[in-house]
Design a protein around this nucleic acid. Sequence first.
DNA 1: ATATACTGTTCTCAAATTGGAGGCAAACTG
DNA 2: CAGTTTGCCTCCAATTTGAGAACAGTATAT
Lengths: 294, 294
Amino acid sequence: MDKLRAIKLFVKLANLGSFTKVAEQTNTSKSLISKEIGRLEDDLGARLLHRSTRNLQLTHVGEGYLQRAIEILEKLDDADNFVSDLQHNVRGKLKINAPMALGITDLSVLFADFMLENPDIELDIHLGDESVDLVEQGFDLGLRASSRAIDSNYVGKPLTRFTYKVCASPEYLARHKAINLPKDLSEHNCFVYSYFQGKDVWPIEDGVAVKGNLKVNSTLFMMDAIKKGLGLGFIPDFVCQKMIDSGEVVEVLAEANKPRLTLYALYPARHFVPTKLVKCIRYLEDWFDTNKPV
Amino acid sequence: MDKLRAIKLFVKLANLGSFTKVAEQTNTSKSLISKEIGRLEDDLGARLLHRSTRNLQLTHVGEGYLQRAIEILEKLDDADNFVSDLQHNVRGKLKINAPMALGITDLSVLFADFMLENPDIELDIHLGDESVDLVEQGFDLGLRASSRAIDSNYVGKPLTRFTYKVCASPEYLARHKAINLPKDLSEHNCFVYSYFQGKDVWPIEDGVAVKGNLKVNSTLFMMDAIKKGLGLGFIPDFVCQKMIDSGEVVEVLAEANKPRLTLYALYPARHFVPTKLVKCIRYLEDWFDTNKPV
DNA sequence: ATATACTGTTCTCAAATTGGAGGCAAACTG
DNA sequence: CAGTTTGCCTCCAATTTGAGAACAGTATAT
């Protein structure tokens, strides 16, 4: 028995004061209403209203139950609306995880733009390179750079493709041995990004073991050290491209085989993606389409 | 779809953290739980929890919905308990309607006894001969004297049978014409009970038109006038019997055909009679069984 | 009075929904 | 790398369901 519907019908019946009218208003039959109210009364073990063919009268019990029933239905509506709001409204929090490695550069601009366009969406951005489980940590969205396919529990929308470049300042190159082959790097001061998975091995060609006197978890910090001519860095192109273009730093080993990664927008579950999240993801896609014609 | 059960299962699921455990605890199957939760999610249009084979995690939405769901279930329990209390507790008010005609005599004793035995029941007794609709006026119980069957909307428990007697004082009879046949009454001073349905016709044999100089809505008052030898009265036997036995008044036309009435305890609906009402009705039956061996 | 219209309930029966069993792929465990 | 456990899915029998008609009763109109 669908108690909820019975309660709804009971409230309606109490308002309209007629089984027939309730049936008409709900496009059902009199018999249904009669049965359903009867079932509810059976379930409660009490009579809710006295019926004479021409008159309906709430019982003492019915009186009290009606009041409570109304409250219950209100609370239910409330709960439904809560869900619906969270689902369809472009409002509320959006908890996002992005790797520090690329968070500081373009993403800051990107999300600033997004927030301008969607003032009702509250962003809660966690930058960090630890591999976190989105669901476990309650993230709505995660950005991941990956060369391989995506974990099947998540949907991964590819946003852009990027690669890494080995950068150094012109001064550094002038003052040190020439770098013609990947293995030449082992004799240079190669900065290491703290959370880089391969740690002391740069994924150039088959991988090159490197060492250096700076380890830091910020590519921008690293870029500054490179610009000062202190050493070499293995830097994502979206971080270093502008400086290469301006001549501040120079790319070496441009021809060497380096991984081409894809930046994914990762989000859990495939059904019922909240619209605010959909909006955000779409924004990400658009932004990378227009601002990053790699 | 039984949304309520789905909600209950969802709450249980959120607590136990496992579809399988919920199935075990509810003696149902995994598939049911899965289906039901799925249905709820469909209905809400949102995912309530992320499931990976080894881990359940409430969604943002699910988190909020859970909270509300718990409140809803509490309110529902509350409503059920309210009904149950009102239904089963031997406490609370009992609104009773009884005809004035017989209310003043035995009923006062009867209900006094009843209240002694049931101190938790509050009686609200309305004496009156106007024919009131029990349900409309919110009465739980009505006492009715009737010769015919009972209105089908009510259940009528017969309590006792009684009849009427034509009474006069010995003095009155000595000072007036003899009364041998019903029609002789028309030449006597016959008191009329105000609310008596037949008004000026006493239902003796085929009915006898009478007239008199007293009209009152209390048989006790009338009895006093009779005892003083002022006239004749058509009096229920439970009012006059004792005085007849003691010789204070005398019955005339004892052989004439007078209506035999039944006193009914009338109450609405045959299902789900509140226990306090059941108790009261049973008390009435017992009382009349033992105290009134007519 | 008699007829009429309208009430809520009951009955029947076809149709929809249901829930359990078993199999499934996935994924955490050791 | 098995092995176990998880949630999900498909299929089918069984139950439940609800519309419609017939019903019993009553108020209103004639």
